[in-house]
Amino acid sequence: MSVIEIKNLVKIYNGSAVQVTAVNGVDLTIEEGEFTAIVGPSGSGKTTLLNMIGGLDSPTSGTIVVDNTDLSTLNKKQLVDYRLHNIGFVFQAYNLIPVLTAKENVSFIMELQGTKKDILTQRTKNILENVGLGDRLNSRPNQLSGGQQQRVAVARALASKPKFVIADEPTANLDSKSTENLLDIMEELNRKENITFIFSTHDQRVVKKARRVIVLEDGKIVKDERRK
């Protein structure tokens, strides 16, 4: 079953002097439970594509349909709701809320969704245990290592029960051990709970783990490889 259907997607940035086509006629379908890596050189359009899938940016032309909803029909406020209920984000620089503990960072997103307190508390604990941080529930981001922070970010992304998780260069700031650890956790979540992951990455360790690799160049898909 497809989660995301993209048809003839184009994104053109109008700079002061030149026009840049960041995404140039992309057609793509992401199926439920896929573990997909989008790779390509810098400027190939990976992040732009993810931003448009995530409803953070709007395409110049083409359509993105998520679970039968065409994102171009949503206004600014509806897009915020769309992101809240459908997408989990993992950023390169973790981007946790510094004044909240690991537990609060994870439960925060559920509070925004209006989840009941008892459910929220239990789910927060379970998710953080799943990412191996059951003993760091009350630590603030500055008390955690980079790898731990990124695991909290993954937990936060999963907290809202999203249809898919977008991870933009999630391992770029991590050492090899932390990267390995994070990838194992995400892979396990993908296998056990059938969560759909879409990465943009340069990291070959991520590419190796991915079961689908899409290569972008100059805004176009030049290779789309599925692995077993």
């Binding site: 809240l84 981007n95 809320i97």
Partner: peptide
Amino acid sequence: KREFGVMVAIGMKRKK
């Protein structure tokens, strides 16, 4: 600014 951007990205309403 970055923190606010993240909050909006993950689904926090600007009003909040």
